[in-house]
Simulated assay, not measured.
Amino acid sequence: MIEIEVQNETHQTQERLRFAAVPRIGEGLRLREPDGMWASYDVLDVWYQKAEYGDIWMPYLHVCMTPGEAVGGDDADNTQGAFDEDASHDLQGEDAFASLAREAEPFKI
């Protein structure tokens, strides 16, 4: 396990977490929010600094919450916060999706 200092730009916090591998820039992480809920974060920056002891380089991460993960994102208009099953089965506008009725024609030169 690798201990990495994670600097959270969204909440302006720092904490040390253990990873099996060092995440790369652009990868996503699931981290626990201060309220106990899990949220997605994007890795903005990865760098290494030499430790105060020995010839060891310590990894550091900058992370920021993934856009659309913020509290009250798409469900802000739903006052009760309940899932509306009827709206999830609404098939209006289904013709806007791709049709698999026929094969795509090959490109002609």
Rank of each mutant, 00 (worst) to 15 (best):
A39Q: 14
W57C: 08
W47C: 01
A82K: 10
A21G: 05
C64A: 15
I25S: 00
Y60T: 06
D45V: 10
R16A: 15
A104N: 08
D95K: 12
T66D: 03
A76K: 10
A20L: 02
D74F: 14
T13F: 01
Q7E: 12
I25G: 04
G93M: 04
M37Q: 15
V6N: 01
L44D: 08
W57P: 00
H62N: 14
D77N: 14
L44H: 05
D45E: 13
A101S: 12
N8M: 05
D84C: 06
G26C: 07
H11T: 01
L17A: 06
L100F: 11
P23V: 00
A20K: 08
K50Y: 07
E15H: 15
A96H: 06
I25F: 12
A101P: 08
L44N: 10
F97T: 02
L17V: 06
N78H: 08
A101V: 09
P23I: 00
W38C: 08
R102K: 11
E52S: 11
V43G: 06
S88G: 13
S99D: 12
E27V: 02
G28W: 03
A87G: 12
T79H: 12
M65S: 03
G36E: 03
Y60I: 06
D45W: 09
A76R: 02
E27P: 00
W38E: 15
I56V: 15
D55N: 10
Q12R: 14
T79Q: 11
R18C: 11
V63A: 05
A101N: 12
A51N: 06
A98Q: 14
E52T: 08
Y53A: 15
D90L: 07
E69R: 04
D90Y: 09
S99C: 12
R32M: 07
W57L: 13
G26Q: 05
A76T: 04
H11M: 06
Y53R: 11
V43T: 03
D75L: 10
A101F: 13
G28R: 05
A51S: 10
L44K: 04
T79N: 07
T66Y: 02
W47G: 11
A20V: 10
V22S: 05
H89S: 07
H89N: 07
Y48M: 08
G72E: 10
D35F: 02
